[in-house]
């Protein structure tokens, strides 16, 4: 698709990109630390991924291949809109295939497929501050990060265990980056937390409304917070993916009819499709005898 004229490459002016890249470098230099940045007015409202879009716009080059997912799927409304946005303003190649992408912008999931060192993940973040719900004052949370006062974070986990018998947080599960900063990994399911630990890919996080950028450089230690006697655990399912039969991926529950019928399907659409192409079939497809 041809670039729409009248816009700078990838929409943002070069000065803004420079400012954001500086913020990104700072963020990479101090893993997990929230760097304030001068978030710009974007042609979509706050809450629709403006942070992630600004990060992507600042790092994208003519030869990049962009994949955009929302809840793991490439075909949801927001993923489609954002992909179209970059096609129009940067004219770059886009893809739905994880292994083809050089930049992957995401909301709420990390792809199942292992990432490579030449890939960059860009996360859309609503609330960057992991302590916000316990300590509403920005002045206090900044001090707590600066002074490494994270006792309050464990208070939240303690409460979970006392109320539910286990740590009930299932997404946006707080992590400690390089044994120093506590970070909110964005609202990805805790299932995806281990993927951030020592990943070959660079992970960048952008919060547009809150005006913060943070990062996890490649091969950085990232550990989910827990207690010695209540260690961190990821979600598991009894079922396999109804379509491709995968047992180790994150499954979405889909309601199929009014009678309570439902099936579990891989949230990562690209991953599921690849498996089906390779000949794997889940119970739904096997039953139909179709491929």
């Amino acid at each position: 698709m041809a670039e729409t004229s009248g816009y700078n490459f990838a929409y943002l002016d070069e000065q803004t990109k420079r400012m954001i890249r500086r913020a990104l470098l700072k963020a990479i230099a101090v893993p997990g630390y929230q760097v304030p940045f001068a978030s710009r007015e974007m042609p979509m409202p706050y809450g629709w991924g403006t942070g992630g879009i600004q990060v992507t716009a600042s790092i994208v080059g003519r030869d990049d291949v962009l994949k955009v997912i929302d809840q793991g799927a490439d075909d949801t409304t927001n993923a489609v809109s954002i992909r179209k946005f970059f096609k129009r303003t940067a004219g770059i190649e886009t893809t739905t295939q994880t292994h083809e992408a050089t930049i992957i912008q995401t909301r709420h999931r990390i792809p199942e497929e292992d990432l490579r060192a030449d890939q960059i993940m860009v996360f859309q973040v609503p609330i960057p501050e992991p302590l916000r719900f316990l300590e509403p004052r920005e002045t206090e949370t900044r001090k707590m990060h600066a002074l490494e006062e994270y006792g309050l974070m464990h208070v939240k986990l303690y409460e979970d265990i006392s109320q539910h018998g286990h740590i009930a947080t299932t997404y946006a599960y707080p992590v400690a980056v390089k044994q120093r900063y506590v970070m909110d990994p964005s609202p990805i399911p805790k299932f995806d937390n281990p993927k951030i630990n020592r990943s070959p890919a660079l992970m960048l996080f952008g919060a547009g409304r809150e005006k913060r950028i943070y990062a996890v450089p490649p091969f950085t230690d990232v550990h989910s917070l827990d207690f010695e006697d209540f260690p961190f655990e990821i979600q598991t399912w009894r079922e396999a993916c109804a379509l491709c039969g995968a047992t180790g991926s994150f499954l979405d529950e889909i309601v199929t009819d009014d009678a309570g019928g439902r099936m579990f399907v891989c949230s990562d659409t690209d991953f599921c499709e690849k498996r089906r192409e390779a000949g794997h079939a889940g119970p739904a497809l096997a039953a139909e005898g179709a491929v």
């Binding site: 006062e149 006792g151 464990h154 208070v155 409460e159 006392s162 010695e228 006697d229």
Partner: peptide, 18 residues
């Protein structure tokens, strides 16, 4: 909770065993 209130200072100085 009351328990979390009392435990907070312990967690603040590094207690990690629920």
């Amino acid at each position: 909770s009351a328990g979390a209130n009392v435990g907070e200072r312990l967690m603040a100085v590094g207690a990690r065993h629920y």
